[in-house]
Design a protein around this nucleic acid. Structure first.
Length: 836
DNA sequence: ATGAACTTCTTTTTT
DNA sequence: AGAAGTTCAT
């Protein structure tokens, strides 16, 4: 994508298009009836409810083509908004391809944010900004807020600036200016939230800067307070299309409603079941309310799925059916039956990763890694155990320890036999396989495992290029060269690399600048003149200022390209050298990134254009290719599809995420459920769900309970894989063979398996069984005797302390932080012991 | 002013 | 377990 061609965007209709007579519409024949209806209803409000894999993008792009092709609209009269740059790019490409060369790019097809930047630059003065305002990244934003918080004498231990940033963000998402924040929010951030928000906005205006939320908020404000401007755009944007409507927040919703208010030619596409961004302000309510907002709207449901097999669809439908307040859709497909969704439990997270790795190898080479042959790989103890279960006996007194042993044995047996010889219907290329996790920390065990077995993988959506420290530093240098008054950029680089300008020196600069009412760069110059700094710091600062002046003069110089200038800045500032001297293992990579950054500059006219681009394109541009397994979060997977999908970590607390449920209760749980729905519907042919009995959480082993979503999977569409897991083990055993009725019944019975029951039981806080208590007593006794009076000990929750008394199985401890407490001895370790 | 040592927090998800 | 932020000693 290139920088802006905004001045032309409104006026220059594509004459070629305009001159065209209405053409035939062969593209309509490619559509199914529902899609066609959505495409042909050009006038008035349209809501397209597009389930996963139902050809939503196709319908949307075809609609655009139809608008153009029938001469209903010119390219510049169509406002088409997406959430991601990727989606915008994709649509541009598809429309372009369908229309041939006749259409120049659509100037108003882009993300909410990029379109708002274009608009806001034209009308900046209406919100007291200059049109060359800068867009802050989250680092700048946070730094600014920290300053305000410190100035307000707030203990940022108890009230972190991060929290304030989050609060302000949410307010902006709801389109509340400081004056509009409702009274109910008055207690936010120790009662000082609103005041700080106001200060923050003032500060931004002083800096001629906006944050991401402002882009929308300012435009909504302008539309609401300037009828003439709004009217102008209502005339210009005669047709509006919105992708992923279920993800819009209030500000975006208002923005759209204002723009569509006149002609009501708005077509929103979305799927309420795939709304997964509530945490950042998205309101499912927007899509649920569409028909009320736009009475008489045409509502079209796209329900024919072209992606997944019936079992996969049924599993997904079964899960999502647990949500209330749905608009309701019934996905169907003509695809062949295919495999059931596969479910497997594992001993722990590492084991899960190991198994997935082997399974992928098997997929790749054409043999199923799974225990189709499970009947003959059971270890003796497992067999006995399962027979006991089969007879209806309780798995009494089995504590984790026992199960662990059993399963370790079984696991070993299986790793020999695991790769059964049954061929899959087909093999999979590695890039047809994806692992979708709930939280990015889950990726780690997979990466570790894949590195050791040499499985090529790629992580999608990780830290984005432009968010990396070295890139931001370099960008700050560029910003400062282009606009020396960019105080936030100055703060970022003044002591990077180290110039001997620490807190104290920086404070002096701040004070001088404020006293003189000038920018930090000018303030620094004055400070030097006044000899307010001495020694190394002074000379280094002088060098930096001199450099900035020199580079600044070269901006726009016709003898020095902006690429050369950028290189010069990085070299002469000492930034490149800073990383060359760095001995840490990541230093070479960072240098590499800097090179890439400079290279990326070549695609732009000048530095300014590049800076503009980067502030909005936080995309991971480089989509590396190659035969690799993809690892990503469920959120990152939305909109993608893969023949084979692994969904690991289906454990309560992880997925659904505890935090989600704590913060948002049922709403949070429903969003998690939608996430599960999104995950399953990414799969075309094979979908494998797994969970582990134990997992490291914050470096601490925790036993896990299978996700409640597993309960919600319709049994008829799930195949429970036996070992090397904890829970399914041995169910096929009773019947003794693959395909027998007994085995199938037994498989379905995983829900009644002892491991399952044990987990369920624990969730209901049933009291411990007798033997366990007895065992705990022994443990306690041992634990007490392991300690002595006065010993320095450590407790997971209370920290360090000294033993001042022993009573039965409890120790009385004087904790350094938490004071005197009585705690059960087994929860305490010697301060010098290494707990494990 | 700077690095080492020690603490505390973190794990959602992103334009 | 690791990162990030804090405090402390040079």
């Amino acid at each position: 994508m290139s920088s802006f061609d905004e001045s032309d965007a409104f006026e220059s209709a594509s004459l070629a298009t305009r001159a065209m007579a209405a053409r035939p519409t062969p593209y309509l024949d490619d559509l199914n009836p529902a899609q066609r209806e959505a495409v042909e209803a050009l006038e008035g409000p349209v809501l397209m409810l597009a389930g996963a894999g139902t050809g939503k993008t196709k319908a949307l792009t075809t609609r655009m083509v139809h608008l153009l092709n029938t001469n209903t609209a010119r390219p510049n009269e169509i406002l088409a908004v997406t959430f991601t740059n990727k989606a915008a790019r994709e649509m541009k490409m598809r429309v372009g391809r369908m229309m041939g060369e006749a259409v120049e790019g659509m100037p108003w097809l882009g993300t909410f944010h990029s379109i708002c930047v274009k608009l806001l630059r034209r009308h900046a003065e209406l919100v007291e900004l200059k049109s060359n305002f800068t867009i802050l990244d989250t680092d700048d934003q946070l730094r600014l807020l920290k300053q305000l918080v410190a100035a307000a004498n707030i203990d940022d231990k108890r009230w972190p600036a991060r929290m304030l940033a989050g609060i302000i963000d949410q307010w902006k998402n709801r389109a509340w200016t400081p004056d509009q924040v409702p009274a109910a929010e008055a207690s936010a951030y120790d009662g000082k939230g609103v005041a700080l928000y106001k200060q923050y906005q003032t500060r931004l205006r002083e800096l001629n800067a906006v944050d991401f939320g402002d882009l929308l908020l300012h435009m909504v404000t302008i539309f609401q307070t300037h009828d003439d401007v709004l009217e102008q755009y209502r005339r210009w944007f005669r047709y509006i299309l919105v992708d992923e409507y279920q993800d819009t927040n209030v500000a975006q919703y208002l923005w759209l409603r204002l723009l569509a208010g006149g002609h009501r030619n708005i077509c929103c596409v979305g799927d309420d079941d795939q709304s997964i961004y509530g945490w950042r302000g998205a309101e499912v309510g927007n899509i649920l309310r569409f028909e009320k907002d736009f009475p008489g709207a045409t509502v079209v449901r796209l329900e024919q799925n072209y992606r997944s097999t019936p079992h996969i669809l049924a599993a997904a439908s079964g899960v999502i059916a647990g949500n209330r307040d749905r608009l309701g859709k019934e996905l169907w497909t003509q695809a062949e039956e295919g495999e059931k969704v596969r479910l497997i439990g594992h001993w722990d997270g590492d084991e899960e990763a190991r198994w997935v790795g082997e399974e992928i190898e098997a997929f790749h080479s054409g043999t199923s890694g799974v225990a189709k042959r499970r009947d003959n790989v059971r270890s003796t103890s497992a067999t006995q155990e399962s027979e006991r279960i089969a007879k209806g006996g309780k798995r009494s007194q089995n504590r984790e320890g026992d199960i662990h042993e059993i399963n370790l044995q079984r696991t070993e047996a299986l790793s020999e036999q695991g790769k059964s010889n049954l061929p899959r219907p087909r093999t999979f290329g590695l890039d047809e396989i994806a692992i979708l996790v709930r939280a990015s920390h889950q990726m780690r065990s997979f990466e570790d495992r894949f590195l050791t077995i040499g499985m090529p993988y790629r992580v999608i959506g990780g830290p984005r290029f432009y968010e990396r420290m070295e890139i931001r530093d370099a960008m700050a240098y560029f910003r400062l060269v282009v606009s020396p008054a960019d105080d936030l950029a100055f703060e970022r680089v003044v002591n990077t690399p180290k110039r001997g300008l620490g807190d104290k020196a920086q404070q002096k600069i701040q004070v001088t600048a404020r006293q003189n009412g000038v920018s930090l760069v000018e303030g620094a110059a004055i400070l030097l003149e006044e000899k307010g700094l001495t020694g190394k710091g002074a000379s280094e600062l002088a060098k930096l200022l001199e450099g900035l002046r020199r580079w600044g003069r070269l901006v726009g110089d016709k003898d020095v390209s902006h690429v050369e200038l950028a290189e010069m800045v990085l070299d002469e500032s000492g930034y490149t050298e800073f990383w060359q001297m760095d001995k840490t293992p990541e230093a070479p990579g960072r240098l590499e990134n800097l090179k890439e950054l400079v290279k990326a500059l070549e695609g732009f006219e000048n530095l300014q254009g590049f800076l503009e681009h980067v502030s909005l394109i936080m995309d991971n541009e480089s989509e590396e290719v190659g035969e690799k397994v993809s690892i990503m979060t469920l959120h990152a997977a939305k909109g993608l599809e893969f023949p084979a999908v692994f969904l690991p970590g289906w454990e309560d607390g992880l997925f659904p995420s505890q935090r989600s449920m704590d913060e948002s209760g049922l709403k949070g749980l429903e969003e998690e459920r939608r996430l599960a729905y999104v995950g399953i519907t990414r799969a075309e042919e094979v979908c494998t769900i797994s969970f582990a009995g134990n997992r490291r959480v914050y470096g601490q082993w925790q036993s896990q309970m299978p996700s409640r979503f597993i309960d919600e999977l319709p049994e008829d569409h799930v195949e429970v894989l036996t070992p090397p897991g904890l829970y399914g083990g041995g169910y096929g055993a009773a019947g003794g063979g693959l395909g027998t009725i007994e085995s199938r019944v037994a498989e379905a019975n995983v829900y009644n398996s002892p491991g399952w029951r044990r987990m369920q039981a624990r969730s209901q806080q049933r009291p411990m069984s007798q033997p366990q208590e007895a065992r705990d007593m022994v443990i306690d006794a041992q634990a007490v005797s392991a300690h002595e009076m006065g010993e320095r000990v450590f407790h997971q929750k209370f920290g360090y302390g000294a033993i001042i008394g022993i009573e039965g199985d409890k120790l009385e401890i004087d904790f350094e932080k938490a004071g005197v407490k009585k705690v059960v001895a087994r929860f305490v370790t010697g301060a010098d012991d290494i707990p494990f």
